[in-house]
Design a binder for these strands. Structure first.
Lengths: 318, 318
DNA sequence: GGACTAATGCTCAGTTTGAGTATTAGTTGT
DNA sequence: ACAACTAATACTCAAACTGAGCATTAGTCC
């Protein structure tokens, strides 16, 4: 047997922070080739992946991470993340990339250093169902999706994924929806990948409603991360790793809505939240923009314990 | 910079099948050094990890896998899985292991080929709360756990993990419980790892209630897998990947109980199951050992769709 | 002091659970 | 053929949880 080709471990991180607007992502790369922060794992220097992730994100962007969780390890041939500019890989190498999710509590202007932060809905406009803009993006996609759904199997997949025909919208099925759009050729990555293998060029898609593409398969990784986060806020109190230390219930609700992309019923949200025992009021009030002042809350100590549960998401009406 | 040491990707698989008794695991190794099926990833020959897993499990045990899902990637230095007998690694290499969970539908005697199958509760006796034996294992551990829990922080962790003081038992917290026992030095791996670093030898533990150890950190991987599976049956219909094609509701319940380690309320279990639409009755009946014959069911077609939900687990009384 | 804007409070009906009690359809022994 | 036995199924009932609204405050801004 010849010398085995080297295996290179790449690390990519979906770094999420909440600004006043909503969830923001840390990106790197140059215009036209934007991607997730990506670094390669040094088998000698790094004792654990997690330390390595913290390390390269900090050194690339000057930003220190809070909560970090492993997402998935991507090892399929033909979908490798690019390490071209690392100058160390050759064609014979096999790149395996380990994806991580990291949360940073709300962005304070001073904390922003290098790196570009972007609203994550830029890459998934149809995932934002709070605004009419997001709903409109989906409406615009539907004709193409329907055209693609020629078999009943496809139709049923589309219906399940996008909550059609009486199925309910499942906010955490981000990856299913993205994969469907990819298969239907409605996202730019699909056309790019096909062009790479067939040499054909498809017509440009209107970015406004198919979202912006990312380098390599980073949008897929991002979709995986989004789905995982959205699912996880339901059973683990990770929302508090994104929220500021003290917050009003409305601010917390806005944050949850921004993450999950749906509107919640205000009174029911606070009801379940108070019952859950995850928050406790500080005495202080918050002088608002206008309207009655709100109580400021903090996460309770029980919310920090090992098995603490997450939030329920009572949807708002039609 | 010197030539970088090689990175070797190892693959380990937690292969679960349901026999009449309960969940069984596929193990390999020789007596005294039992572990999970383990193989190394060939950067040239294998296009994807998943294919590689199917491949090495089949070639090592003659058993073909059904459902396969990635579990976690373990890359911490000092916890590498052993590849000693592969004859290809040197001290300078860094081993990263990607763990997988695989499910095989119920074991038919004829399907068993190589490999050893073992009841997974052999490794986690305290996780089986259906039998008095399992409850007893926990009772026997408690004095030692309490002795270890000298701080309130530790006490609260123990209480959360093991459902003490009014906290409820969370069947999916398998890893938390194992880690706690490890920290408390109550599982053999802890003593082995300490002996490796300090050269001290601790007294042997009574295997009957601390469970049997596995090679390397395989018991930890197994705990992770068990927790994941137990959590997942609640939100995805994977139980049907373990069940036979046709089953009675009692058989299905037994299977769920065996997996999750708790007793369920029979009438409520079938009520939620029927409402869920995950199963549909075949016309056929099942001639039982004794008692009224039961209807045979199959998983419904909707249970196969993308976003299908899992089972609710209505606990039985005290 | 009145208008305006959110934050909080409360209600109510429809569902979903947790726990049991009551029947029913086979099997087995006499 | 009948009685005893064993599970599978059917039903009931109350407590807890949810989905939807209506009603009441406590500040800010003319």
């Amino acid at each position: 047997m010849n010398a085995t080709p080297r295996v290179i471990i790449g690390l990519s991180a979906v770094v999420v922070a909440a600004s006043g607007k909503g969830p923001e992502l840390l990106l790197s790369g140059s215009p036209g080739a934007i991607g997730l922060p990506f670094g390669s794992f040094d088998p000698i220097g790094h004792r654990t992946f997690e330390l390595a992730v913290r390390d390269f994100v900090t050194s690339q962007t000057g930003f220190a991470l809070g909560y970090v969780e492993q997402l998935y390890t991507f090892g399929d041939k033909g979908r490798e993340a690019p390490v071209a500019d690392m100058g160390q890989s050759s064609d014979a190498d096999r790149v395996v990339s380990v994806g991580y999710i990291a949360l940073a509590s709300s962005i304070v202007e001073g904390q922003r250093r290098a790196g570009v932060w972007a609203d994550w809905y830029r890459f998934f406009p149809w995932e934002d169902r709070r605004s009419t803009a997001g709903m409109r993006a989906l409406d615009l996609l539907m004709p193409d999706l329907n055209a693609w759904a020629t078999t009943t199997e496809r139709q049923s997949r589309v219906a399940m994924a996008f909550g059609l025909h009486g199925q309910s919208w499942q906010e955490s099925q981000v990856l299913d929806r993205f994969e469907l759009l990819y298969e239907a050729g409605l996202v730019q990555e699909a056309q790019r990948d096909r062009a790479n293998s067939h040499g054909s060029v498809a017509p440009a898609l209107e970015r406004a409603y198919v979202g912006e593409p990312l380098v390599s398969d980073h949008r897929r990784i991002l979709a995986t991360a989004m789905g995982r986060l959205r699912a996880k806020i339901r059973y683990r109190p990770i929302i508090f790793d994104l929220a500021p230390v003290r917050f009003t219930l409305s601010e917390l609700q806005d944050l949850v809505e921004a993450l999950s992309g749906v509107k919640l019923h205000k009174q029911n949200f606070r009801r379940t939240l108070e019952r859950s025992g995850l928050v406790e009021s500080t005495g202080a009030m918050h002088a608002e923009t206008g309207g009655r002042p709100a109580m400021l809350f903090t996460r309770s100590s029980t919310s920090r314990q090992a098995g603490a549960s997450g939030l329920s998401l009572p949807l708002a009406k039609r």
